[in-house]
Each structure stands twice: as structure tokens, then as C-alpha cells.
Design a protein around this nucleic acid. Structure first.
Lengths: 228, 228
DNA sequence: CACCTGAGAATTTGATCATATTCTGGTGCC
DNA sequence: GGCACCAGAATATGATCAAATTCTCAGGTG
């Protein structure tokens, strides 16, 4: 995932040896990305201490990291909550995602191996299955996996890191929209992306990615508009 | 600065009321941006506890935030240090800065007031003075101020946040290069940017910004190359 | 008489610290 | 050269203090 933020790099044979604050961070991060937490929801330190059965210091550090990530919001008084996105925020996210993720797609295209492309295809199949069965949580996980896996082949840690952060920002809203509109209606340009990868055509990959990003975000806009 | 990371918003009459972890964060951040800390240098919690005369918990939280910002690096074991940039990192930074900061320049151009332009001009004057007198620290501060002030008028908190983070990544290296090559040699496209702002020409502003970014980063590349 | 308002207490939550425990890296002995 | 030990640093806990929100209950008003 992100070079700078996930340091222990998951020592293969020793999964239990991660520090507590790292474990808390991962758990909380997943909850935000995949929707246990709703936009606007308050997040309390003591609540997480009980829920995650962790000490106070690790929880504190995890929250600080996630605030820095843009995944949580410090409300000025000492309260922390999951951010609500406005139309302007989404407009910014569209621009940022387009430029960053298209570039990552370009870079990945010229470096990825055939075997890795098939791994991506496998993820996309799982995604299709989730869409077909209306499995919202599965859809969110697989969609995120697809993008993350692709970017990991771009050999661009800083850009990948930026992209990862952007996902944390709209994750909660994506969940709300998916829950409301269902997974069926979501666009999926992943087939086009896979085609481009196989043809080793960076610009085609970038274009497909641009469509995927734009349609996905547009969908969020519509979903949030429906909420008013 | 960044919406999401600097919450207390500096209650006008009560500067002493910031929490300790926030103060530590600001101090450490400034040290990184403006060069007290050298790339590769180790950062220890206990060292900062003594230096900044703060408790352990606030220091810990500040370090976590800065790691998440990309300003510090977790070395896998429990060590933390200031990152060293490689050529590939700089190449990524050039792309990211170009796209993000040019867009911020565009957005600022169509929103900034005449009075605010003059404030920018004043910063640029201070910058010129620092260059003329060879004041490296002043140069770094004023240069950062100019960009930050400009972006604050773009009304784009997410993009500004991304830009801010990028500065944290190359700040230490910029300091090294400036110290080695002197401030004289640094390019300064700020006059062009100010021109574009006054003419309300977004594309011209973006172009000037692109040059400023590119020449600045190219300079860093040359400086680092000279170090080998 | 019902309802709104606001002061102040009670409770919840966050911030900080002192301390115990665990881990890493280095040193010196075999 | 490899292994055991040691010093120092990081991680994690729980207690304590401080702040903020919420609740409650008078008092006043329509």
C-alpha cells in the first residue's frame, strides 16, 4: 500500500508482531474505507478503546494518523468525526483522482507483467460477482483492491500514497451511495483498463481510468444529491 | 494552511490555548520545512522530549502525524528519520507538484482580490531581499509563504492539503541544496505569476507556476547530483 | 398552563504524564 | 564468526487533570 505509512511491511511469517497502534490503524482504516462508519458520525477515543479492545495511546496515535490522512476530521473543539463531503469537495477529488490515478495507470501499463495482469483480472471477476449478487461490502473491497493492486505496479510510491489518501476521503460517502443505489448501477471500466494493459497502451489505460474515475465520482454526486 | 490538519484555527485572542501536541507538531514541521533537520538524520522521541520540553505523548502524536505527512520516515525497526530523496522520488514530485500547484494557481487567479495580490507582491519583495543578502533561511520561509498564501485563495482545501504535503517531502532537500549552491542561483518565476494574477489570466498563471516548479525541482536535482 | 430560555451541575471525553514492559542494536566474550 | 548479554529507546498502560457537552431545573413569558 503506502510506503511511508505502513512501515512494518508485514513480515511474512510473523503477523502477530505488529505494534498495537498499527493494528488499530489498519482496523479503523478499513472501517472507514468499507463503510462501518457513516459520514458525520462521531468518533470517540474511549469508544474505540472499548470496541477495539486496545489501550488509549495506540488509539490516539491511529486517530492522529487518520486525521492527517483526511480520513477523519478534527472538529475544532476536541471532537473527531467522519467527514461529510460537499459538492465542492467532490469536484476537487475528481480533479485530483483524474490526474494522479491516470498517471499511475500509465506507469503501471509499461511495467506490469502478464501474470500480474491476470491477478488483476481475477480481482475484477470477484468484483463482478459482488455486483451480481448485490454484495455492497464485497464490491467496495474488490473495487479498492483492483485500484490498489494496479497502482502497486506503477513503481511510484509518492503518487500511490496520494491516491490512497484520496480514497480514504470519499470512502464513507461511496458506501452510503452504494447502499442507497445498489451496486448494479455502478459503472465498471475495469475491462477497458485490463484491455489497455494487455495491449501495453498507456494512453488507452489512462483514458479508461479517467472514465472509471469520472463515472464513479459522478455517481457519488448523484447519490449525495438524492440525499438532500 | 491545511483545513484538516490545523483544526483549532488560531482563536484570535488566545494563542496560548493550543494543545501541546499541536504546538509540537508545528515546531517540528517548521524545523523540517526550513531545514534544522537534515535528510537522513535520525529523530528520536526522547530527544524531542528534551529539546522541545514537551511530554512524551504529544511528541509521539506529532511524529505520527508527520510520518503520515511523508515528512518523516518510519524505518521498519522502531527508528524514525528525515527521508532522503532519490532521483525517482523527485521525478514523482515534479509531476505531482506541476499538476496540483498549476491547478491551484488557476483557481486562485479567478478568485483573488487586488488587495491580496499586493500582499503576495510584498512577500515576493521580502523574498528578493533574502536572495540578495544570501539569507537562506529567509529565502525558504518567504518562498514557502508565497506559495501557501497563493493557494489559500484558490478555495480548494483538498488540493492545498496535497500541495502542502509535497512541500514537506522536499523541504529538507531544498535546504541542503540552498545551503550548498547559495540562494542566488535559484530561479524565481513569482514576478510572472504576479503578472498573470493581475491580468486575471489563469492559463498564464498556470504556465508561470509550471516553470517555477520545474526550475525549482530541477535545481534540487542538480544539487543532489553534485552531492554524490 | 404550556413552552421557551439560560445558568449551573453532572457526566462524558480528551489531554497529559509517570511508569512498567518489550524490543532493538551493539558490545564483548567464547 | 557467532552467540549471549546489556544499555537505551520505543511501546503501551492506567491514573489524573482539564475541558466541553448535556442535562436539569428554575424562572420568566405568551
Amino acid at each position: 500500500m503506502t510506503e511511508t505509512t505502513s512501515p512494518p511491511a508485514a513480515v511474512h511469517g510473523n503477523p502477530a508482531k505488529l505494534p498495537a497502534h498499527e493494528i488499530v490503524y489498519q482496523k479503523l482504516r478499513a472501517q472507514i474505507l468499507f463503510g462501518e462508519l457513516v459520514p458525520g458520525q462521531a468518533v470517540t477515543i474511549q469508544g474505540l478503546v472499548e470496541t477495539l479492545e486496545a489501550g488509549m495511546t495506540p488509539v490516539r496515535e491511529a486517530i492522529r494518523r487518520l486525521i492527517s490522512d483526511g480520513a477523519l476530521m478534527f472538529q475544532g473543539n476536541r471532537r473527531v468525526s467522519v467527514p461529510l463531503l460537499g459538492a465542492e469537495d467532490i469536484e476537487e477529488l475528481i480533479f485530483a483522482r483524474k490526474t494522479i490515478e491516470c498517471e499511475l495507470a500509465r506507469r503501471a501499463t509499461i511495467q506490469i507483467s502478464a501474470a500480474d495482469i491476470e491477478e488483476l483480472a481475477a480481482i475484477d471477476n470477484a468484483l463482478d460477482k459482488a455486483i451480481a449478487t448485490g454484495d455492497v461490502a464485497g464490491y467496495l473491497v474488490q473495487n479498492y483492491s483492483f485500484h490498489t493492486a494496479l497502482y502497486s505496479h506503477a513503481n511510484a510510491p509518492i503518487l500511490s500514497d496520494i491516491a490512497d489518501r484520496l480514497w480514504l476521503r470519499f470512502g464513507p460517502s461511496l458506501r452510503v451511495v452504494s447502499g442507497r443505489l445498489g451496486t448494479q448501477s455502478f459503472p465498471d471500466r475495469h475491462k477497458d483498463i485490463l484491455d489497455a494493459l494487455r495491449r501495453q497502451d498507456p494512453e488507452m489505460a489512462a483514458l479508461a481510468m479517467e472514465r472509471d474515475v469520472f463515472e464513479g465520482m459522478e455517481h457519488v454526486v448523484q447519490g449525495l444529491r438524492a440525499a438532500n
